[in-house]
Structure formats: C-alpha cells, structure tokens
Design a protein around this nucleic acid. Structure first.
Length: 577
RNA sequence: UGGGGCGUAGCCAAGCGGUAAGGCACCGGGUUUUGAUCCCGGCAUUCGCAGGUUCGAAUCCUGCCGCCCCAGCCA
C-alpha cells in the first residue's frame, strides 16, 4: 500500500507528531493503537480512526497495535473480534501486536492497590443513585462521599474483598480521590472499578470487578508504550483524568505492577502517552450510530450487517467500494477538531477514481431492446477483439462475439428524442461500440405500441478498424450479442436514505422515515460472455452504466450476481430530469 | 450561572503577522468509438460579528454572537 495516492496536505495531528519526533520526545518513537470495543461491527467512521492510527504510525516509521477494549463483559462478544480483524486487514493495515485490555487486568488491580496505598483512591459504599446525587450538577459542585476519608487499611481491606467477590453487584465502587468541586465533572472522584459478577469473554470468572474506561484505557496505552493516543472529541475533557491515571500510577517507575505481563511474555515498556483528540468522521446520507445500524438489521430494513447499503466496512466491501478508495476518502476529508459532515459524493468520487484506473471494461445490457442488423446474414458470427481498458494497454484484450441479433439498452432508442439526445432515433445513425455505424430503418412495435425491435443496417464502410470508422456520429452505444449473452442478476444500489441528514428531525420525521425504498433494485441483465469468468469481488466497469463487483457471497459461475458500487458520472441525465 | 472545544465557499479543509492552497460539488470550453476518463478555465476583495494593536491581521489583543461535548458503576 505504499501505493497509489501520495500523502497530501497536512493536519494538526501530523504536525504534532512531526514536532514530537523532531524534538526527540519519546526517543523519537511513534507508537499508536486502534482500540475498538468488541461490541459491534466496524463502519466507515471507524475507518477514519483506523487510517489515522495505522497511517500515522506507518508514516513516521512506528507501529500500531490492535487492542480490543474488553472491559465491559456482557456488552461484548468475541464473535465481533474476527470481523474487526478482517476489516482492518481488508483496509490494508496490519497491527504490530494484538492485545486485549483484559490482558492487563492483573496490572490494573495492582495499580488500584497502589493508588489506595498512596491515599489516592477509596472504596465508596454509595449506590449509583447516591453517587449521582453527590456528584452535583454542571453548575453546582459535588459533595464528598461520607466514605471518602476511610483509612488506607480499610480501603485496602474492602477493595481486596471486592476482588474476592464478597460484595454484591453495584454495592461498592473504587473511586479516585481527586476533587468533588472540579468544574470538570470527570474529575469529581470518578469510579475506577465497579463490581460486576459476569463471566468475561476472555478472563472467564476470574474477576468479579472490572475497571472503568478512563482507568483501563490510559494504563493500557502506557503499558503498550503508546506515544500518541488518538481519540474523538468527546474525550477531550477526559484528558486530565487520563493524565492523572498515567501520572499517579507511574508505571515506568513501578515495574512490580507489570511484572505479570513480563512473566506472560507480553512485551512491556511503559510510556507517558499523549492523548490527542480529533473530530469523528460523519457522512451525509447515512447513519453511523451502533444503535441505528442495529435497528436497520433487526427490523429487516437491510439484509444484514454486510448489506451493500450499510456503512459498515463489511457492507462497503460487498458494495464494491475498494479499500484504497476509502483510504483516500479519509485522507481527502482531512483531520481537524471541527464537527463536520462530509458529503457522500466525495466518497463516490474516490470510488470512481480508483475503479476508473483498475476496473476492466465490459458491456452489459440491463433493459434489453432487440436490434437486428438486417444486412448481416442470420448465421453471421464474428469475433471482435476489445481492449479491456481505454487508457491502459496492460489490461490486455478480450474477445466479444458479434452476430446479427443484438440487444441494446432500451433507453438508447427514442422515437421522439428529447433535445440533445445523441443516441438512436428512427432514421438516425449511432455507433455500436466496436462494430461500426448503424442506421435505424424501422422500429417494430407490439400491439400495445411498445417498440420491441429495431431493424438497422450496418454501414460496412464504417466498420471498426477501417479508415471509414473515423466518420463522426453523435453517439456511441453498447450492446451484447443476443445469442451469446449470459444472463445474470444485477443489484442496483442507491443511497440508503433520501435526505442528507437522516438524524435531523426538525421536519417532524424520524430517521426511519427517510429510509430510501428504492435503495435496492434487483434486475436480470445480459452480459457479454467474457463475464462468465468473473470471480467474486472482481470489479468491472460496465460501459456507460457504472462500476460493478461480482458479489462476494452470492456470485457463482452458474448464477452470476453483480452489485453496482456506483454509477458513472452522468452529464446528460441530470439535464433531462 | 460550571468545565472543555469549535467557527475560512454549498460540503470538507490548508493557512501559524506579508496580502485566501487543495478536494468534492457547481458553471463554462477542448479531446474522446463510454454523454465516462482526461485536459483547460471559472467559482471567498475576504476568513462568525464588533472594536483594538500594526506599515501590514484569517493569523495578535478585547468584547460579543453561534454551534458541539460533559452530570453511566458505558466506551
């Protein structure tokens, strides 16, 4: 992937890392991590974080770990882990080490003990409701818990008993002793540990207590030697707590805390990581929240997590979007601290750009109209050779059979053409791609008056490859030999929502009211025979129609299935609409 | 009435005291056997607003205005 799109532009994160490396901070080392919680599928928004985390590491000669943030058993499921790994690899990245926050449970526990011994954490007996009450509000300071000043000995005893499973869920917590009057609510003695007697997906029943995000995440970063820890804007006011945990536990100077890791063979070299926040990536015409995505799947509004209309990475892949396109999309979108919504069109442009360069061309007819070349014998059979790419000879050529009876796109003929129409009209001429110029002598209609066949004559002097082929005609249309065409299912996808911002309910409608009913259409199609050899996930441009991909799961040689990733830019149809 | 952020074109986004990059979109024009691609050109006298400092301000200062996030024993 040191490929296609050179790094362009800059952003504040690159500048920070560049400056840190230049000044020799952390010995000039750059280590990052991508820390998803294994409780769902990765989507395009995660791709931004993945590109940033892995991209910065690669750009600065460092490494990036994949860390599964599994600190909340019950909400998480190891089943998601494979999907996450798969998506990260598909996007083109490889992690240095695969870790789990649960790998560090023993270290977290020892770190908590240390904080207690240092008088910086205490066991609180207040229940959830009472804690909320003591916390104060945004504008009023909180009050100290009556348990805040227990002795170190009592706290140690209580915490060890919490760990031993002596207390009921929710009956106690371990809290950091910071400042109940802080304007930053995250500093009002935040919980470090809660009691949760649930089997953990990796740790089993070893722990009746589980660490909270701020405590686990900051220490995990430090343990992995992370230098730059990127996260989204909402964690900005958690940074003081992140730093508090890192500084007060002081892993580098307390190797006894992480000795268990060394014994297990987990490379550990604690650092003083720096958290840097950036704006999460939002896309227009879609929803990205885990809850809404789950609703779409559960309510059967889509056909699963990898439905080609879903903004999940599995969905984008099946849709035919390429990893390279998604990478350049996020590079192009930039990284800043401004909440924003990027136009879906930018993503489509990236997909077209990538596929224009790498998708071989083919011809396919979606809505067939019979076209007979009357001056060719009924038995005529000829093999034409077509280049696979108009600008890149390395794509080679393919053979395309030509016979007297062809199929063309119904919309490429008009009895009464709209102004500017450049295709076939009664008595008019058009070029049949790679064949020559044909003239429409007669349009045959059925009883209902629908045109069912065009009878045309081919100008032999305009045949492709002859000097006469230079003759100018207004339009060129694609075709397929009726007798040789293979039938296939073509799935035409469009944006899942009919408004740019489905989450906006000021129009009195909910996001569900904006699901686009025409976002998926399935139709039979007639393809040139060379497409019989298409392999799943292989991309093609069906000339004049769009970019397609052989469906990853349903496509077979016997029953071909192609998904439209994106249509071609069309300077014509918008004007007639 | 607390704390933390952010305001540059329709959507993103560079810019870091020396006179507004780039992309998408849009509008022209050229090439073209895909109404595609490609190529050229256009698209902010102005950076949320108002003052101030300066020879010079999107960049510095002050004051307003607007938007986002925070009161889980979620992450």
């Amino acid at each position: 992937m040191a490929d296609e799109h050179p790094t362009v532009g800059t952003n504040f994160i690159r500048q920070i890392v560049l400056a840190d490396q230049a000044s020799g901070k952390q010995d000039g080392r750059v280590t990052t991590r991508f820390p998803p919680e294994p409780n769902g599928h990765l989507h395009l928004g995660h791709a931004k974080a993945i590109c940033l985390d892995f991209g910065i590491a690669r750009e600065f000669g460092g490494t990036c770990n994949l860390r599964l943030d599994d600190t909340n058993p019950g909400k998480e499921d190891p089943a998601f882990v494979e999907g996450i790994k798969d998506s990260v690899r598909w996007l083109g990245f490889e992690w240095n080490e695969l870790r789990h926050a649960s790998d560090y449970f023993e270290v977290f526990y020892r770190a908590a003990l240390k904080l207690i011994e240092d008088g910086k954490a205490y066991v609180d007996d207040l229940n959830a409701e009472e804690v909320r009450d003591y916390r104060g509000t945004l504008t009023e300071p909180g009050r100290d818990s009556p348990y805040r000043n227990r002795t170190v000995e009592e706290n140690l005893d209580l915490f060890k008993r919490m760990r031993a499973g002596e207390f009921a869920d929710g009956s106690r917590t371990l809290r950091a002793k910071i400042d109940m009057a802080s304007g930053n609510i995250n500093l009002r003695d935040p919980a470090l540990y809660r009691i949760r007697k649930i089997t953990h997906q990796n740790a089993g029943d070893a722990w009746p207590i589980y660490p909270m995000y701020d405590f686990a995440h900051s220490l995990s970063d430090a343990l992995e030697g992370i230098t730059h820890s990127f996260c989204t804007l909402e964690f900005e006011d958690h940074r003081p707590l992140y730093d508090w945990c890192v500084d007060n536990v002081d892993l580098p100077n307390h190797p006894e805390l992480w000795q268990p890791l060394i014994e297990r063979g987990l490379r550990t070299a604690p650092s003083k990581p720096r958290q840097i926040e950036f704006a999460r990536g939002n896309l227009s015409y879609t929803v990205m929240s885990k809850r809404k995505l789950a609703t779409l799947v559960n309510d059967r509004l889509v056909d699963g997590w990898d439905d080609p209309r879903m903004p999940t990475l599995a969905g984008a892949r099946r849709r035919g979007f390429t990893a390279a396109a998604i990478r350049t999309f996020w590079e192009r979108a930039g990284v800043s601290k401004q909440n924003s919504v990027i136009d879906y069109g930018v993503l489509e442009a990236c997909v077209r750009e990538d596929l224009d360069a790498r998708a071989p061309r083919r011809m396919a007819v979606l809505d067939p109209l019979k076209l007979t070349i009357t001056n060719l014998p009924a038995t005529h059979m000829e093999t034409l050779v077509f280049p696979n790419h108009p600008k890149d000879e390395s794509f080679g050529t393919r053979e395309v059979p030509l016979s007297r009876d062809l199929l063309i796109e119904h919309e490429d003929f008009a009895e009464v053409p709209p102004k500017g129409f450049k295709r076939l009209v009664p008595g008019g001429e058009v070029r049949l791609r790679g064949i020559g110029i044909v003239k429409c002598d007669e349009a045959i209609k059925d009883a209902a008056g629908t045109v069912i066949e065009l009878r045309c004559t081919l100008d032999p002097d305009s045949r492709h490859g002859t000097p006469g082929a230079d003759r100018k005609v207004k339009g060129t249309i694609h075709w397929v030999s009726a007798r040789h065409a293979i039938e296939a299912e073509v799935r035409l996808y469009d944006r899942l929502f009919d408004v740019a911002d489905p989450d906006d309910e000021t129009d009195g409608k909910t996001w569900l009211d904006h699901v686009n009913p025409d976002s998926r259409r399935s139709a039979p199609a007639y393809l040139e025979p060379s497409l019989r050899n298409a392999a799943p996930e292989q991309h093609f441009q069906f000339e004049r129609i769009g970019y397609f991909v052989a469906d990853r799961h349903d496509h077979t040689r016997e029953a071909p299935v192609f998904n439209r990733a994106v249509n071609l830019r069309d300077a014509w149809s918008p004007s007639v609409r």
